[in-house]
Amino acid sequence: MLRTLVLLACLAGPAAAGTLRVAAWDVGLARGGAGVLLGELAKPPSPQIAAVAAVLQSVRPDVVLLSGVDDDHQGMALAALATMLAAGPDGIAYPHRFRAAVNAGEPSGFDLDGNGKRTDWADGWGWGRFPGNGGMALLSRLPIDAAAAHTFRLLRWHDLPGALLPTRADGTPYPDAASAAELRLSSRSHWDVPVTLPGGGTLHLLASAPTPPLFDGAEGFNRRRNHDEIGFWTAWLGGAVFPDDGGQPASAPARDFVVLGNLNADPADGAGLRDGIAGLIASPRLQDPRPTSDGGRAAASPGHAGAPELDTADWDEAGPGNLRVDYVLPSSDLAVAGAGVFWPAPGAPLAEAVAAASPHRLVWVDLSLP
């Protein structure tokens, strides 16, 4: 393993002194039933879980947003994952963790898919087989100020300025007026989580994991929701004020923040409404480090308009081709010291582990500390 880590220095390398490595990764740890992931983590690691650990122990982010990970509402699976990551000679300790309820799998009480039932997977406030299915979590080596965090899971979709709410062909609300009035914007949640920096400052992590813009009918429910989940950040950073889940009005931080997560949208390719992600990237309050990888370049999808080295998801076998859907976008006032997508070229160290871990690739950005 030591030889592997030395070879990996040319791929991601450890964060340099005086920098903070912030990462986002959809780890693909969503399972088919409540408690299944926790049960897996109580056993010797499966090939996939071992691969997830190998990637994180090699890239060694100081703070990482994990999406696509089941939440058991007590944080037991997240704690078990952190324990596994800390083990062994290459272990990395994450003593600080943040998790909160998500809309995925949370029953809405409405028939959101219009099939006459109110208990299907598609009838949750966000799609999911059970509450917390495919949620989000933060692991951090630095203290998290959970008391100062804002979550926006309960925000109604129609409260977003300019919301692209789905409608039926006749222009009436989809799926009906009663449920449309209560639809939540977040398929999982939107978080503003402050992390305390070594010098005493604060870095705000603005985290989300919007729904894929797929599996739609003519109303375009998921495409519109994906667009508007991303649009939440554009509106918030542009000065909009939203009530958090405690009912308190919350404004965006003035400086020192990072928007991160699997946003499930590519500005050049794929099925999404591209102006949503393009508008966020173009926000004057953000900068795009345009992280790249040799693996993405080598796996270019024919016919795509976007630069393949920017891609973060390997979907060639699944239909849409490889896309850039995972992001770490620092605020414009922060100094970026480096960035990358952890996607080794074929035959490079950990290339097989990366492929075994998840269709998504970890994205990292190194920020210079003040």
Score class of each variant (00 low, 15 high):
residue 280 L to Q: 04
residue 310 L to S: 00
residue 308 P to S: 02
residue 359 P to R: 14
residue 125 W to N: 02
residue 77 A to L: 14
residue 225 R to G: 02
residue 3 R to I: 03
residue 292 T to N: 12
residue 283 S to H: 08
residue 256 D to F: 13
residue 364 W to D: 06
residue 136 M to T: 00
residue 357 A to M: 04
residue 163 A to F: 14
residue 35 G to R: 05
residue 74 Q to T: 11
residue 10 C to T: 09
residue 106 E to H: 07
residue 311 D to T: 12
residue 132 G to N: 09
residue 125 W to S: 02
residue 26 D to G: 00
residue 307 A to L: 07
residue 319 G to T: 09
residue 299 A to C: 09
residue 73 H to K: 14
residue 156 R to P: 04
residue 319 G to N: 13
residue 125 W to Y: 06
residue 191 W to N: 06
residue 14 P to I: 09
residue 193 V to K: 11
residue 295 G to N: 07
residue 308 P to K: 07
residue 125 W to K: 07
residue 323 L to D: 00
residue 152 F to E: 06
residue 279 G to Y: 06
residue 360 H to M: 06
residue 150 H to S: 04
residue 83 T to D: 12
residue 365 V to I: 09
residue 335 A to I: 01
residue 207 A to V: 14
residue 33 G to C: 01
residue 366 D to I: 08
residue 270 G to P: 06
residue 72 D to S: 11
residue 231 G to Q: 09
residue 49 I to M: 05
residue 296 G to C: 03
residue 233 W to S: 03
residue 3 R to C: 05
residue 185 L to N: 06
residue 276 G to F: 06
residue 273 L to P: 02
residue 269 D to Q: 09
residue 306 G to A: 04
residue 1 M to K: 14
residue 25 W to Q: 04
residue 285 R to V: 12
residue 370 P to L: 03
residue 214 L to E: 01
residue 134 G to I: 05
residue 258 V to P: 05
residue 154 L to T: 07
residue 343 W to Q: 01
residue 240 A to P: 02
residue 198 P to K: 15
residue 348 A to M: 10
residue 6 V to K: 15
residue 286 L to G: 05
residue 169 A to G: 13
residue 337 A to H: 10
residue 199 G to D: 14
residue 58 S to P: 05
residue 358 S to P: 01
residue 14 P to W: 07
residue 156 R to A: 09
residue 260 L to Q: 07
residue 48 Q to Y: 02
residue 37 L to C: 08
residue 142 L to R: 12
residue 168 R to I: 12
residue 179 S to W: 07
residue 329 L to W: 12
residue 124 G to T: 00
residue 59 V to M: 07
residue 324 R to K: 12
residue 265 A to W: 11
residue 225 R to Y: 01
residue 39 G to I: 10
residue 211 T to Y: 15
residue 134 G to N: 01
residue 89 P to Q: 05
residue 322 N to D: 08
residue 270 G to V: 05
residue 343 W to V: 02
residue 75 G to F: 02
residue 222 N to L: 03
residue 194 P to K: 15
residue 148 A to H: 09
residue 38 L to A: 09
residue 112 L to Q: 05
residue 25 W to P: 01
residue 276 G to H: 13
residue 359 P to E: 01
residue 271 A to W: 04
residue 84 M to E: 05
residue 85 L to P: 03
residue 339 A to P: 06
residue 44 P to E: 14
residue 49 I to Q: 04
residue 130 F to I: 09
residue 326 D to G: 12
residue 352 E to R: 15
residue 367 L to N: 08
residue 14 P to V: 02
residue 304 H to Q: 13
residue 179 S to G: 04
residue 240 A to M: 08
residue 55 V to A: 10
residue 192 D to Q: 14
residue 328 V to Y: 00
residue 231 G to K: 11
residue 335 A to Q: 14
residue 335 A to C: 07
residue 222 N to M: 02
residue 236 W to C: 02
residue 247 G to V: 05
residue 219 E to H: 15
residue 299 A to V: 09
residue 33 G to I: 03
residue 19 T to E: 08
residue 298 A to W: 10
residue 92 I to F: 06
residue 180 A to M: 12
residue 306 G to F: 05
residue 188 R to L: 01
residue 279 G to K: 11
residue 144 I to V: 13
residue 8 L to I: 10
residue 103 N to V: 03
residue 265 A to D: 02
residue 133 N to K: 10
residue 153 R to H: 00
residue 34 A to L: 11
residue 354 V to F: 07
residue 196 T to D: 02
residue 139 L to T: 03
residue 205 L to S: 02
residue 239 G to I: 08
residue 247 G to F: 11
residue 148 A to V: 11
residue 26 D to K: 13
residue 66 L to E: 08
